[in-house]
Amino acid sequence: MEIKPWKLNKAARCAHCKDATIHSIIIDRYKMKIKCRDCGFTRFYNFHVVNIPKRR
């Protein structure tokens, strides 16, 4: 089943420009991208592992 990437916004202090700015967050099955809308500083994450709880 194809699931579209999630799109979120977060107001937070940017690690690069140090200002309180809006960050665009895009999360898909294997990648995650967080970008400061003000200065453009971007962090990229890769999928690492999934933990599935045991069924009771």
Partner: peptide, 24 residues
């Protein structure tokens, strides 16, 4: 350096690790 997402329905927790940054 890392991120975690977990579903409140099935409980599956997915872990992501930082790959890199792009500075303007």
């Amino acid at each position: 350096n890392k991120a975690k997402i977990w579903c409140t329905n099935c409980g599956a927790a997915r872990y992501y690790l930082i790959k890199g940054v792009e500075r303007p």
